[in-house]
């Protein structure tokens, strides 16, 4: 298990740079209604593939976050 050295000075969160997907990569979102996982590319319309709902939630980051148990 790699432990990234993103140790912030205060007991808080990772501040990382946001990842810009670029034209090739797809990012997974979750539909607000049907909880279906939706893959969208850069420039794709924001719409669930199944139910057509236009509210999509982003998944939690895969990055490791460190906290102090205080």
């Amino acid at each position: 298990m790699s432990r990234e050295a993103y140790v912030a000075p205060t007991s808080a969160f990772n501040t990382g740079t946001t990842v810009d997907p670029g034209p090739g990569l797809t990012t997974q979102y979750i539909c607000g209604d049907c909880n279906q996982k939706v893959l969208l590319k850069q420039g794709d319309g924001i719409r669930c593939k199944e139910c057509g709902h236009r509210i999509l939630y982003k998944e939690r980051t895969k990055r490791m976050v460190q906290f102090e148990a205080r």
Partner: peptide, 26 residues
């Protein structure tokens, strides 16, 4: 001895990371 550092790889539960970390410390 007590838990001091919590490295969260994933937490999709309703309990926030920092709240869960605080509980683990105690």
């Amino acid at each position: 001895l007590a838990i001091e550092y919590v490295f969260v790889h994933n937490n999709t539960s309703i309990v926030q990371d920092e709240v869960l970390s605080h509980r683990l410390g105690l």
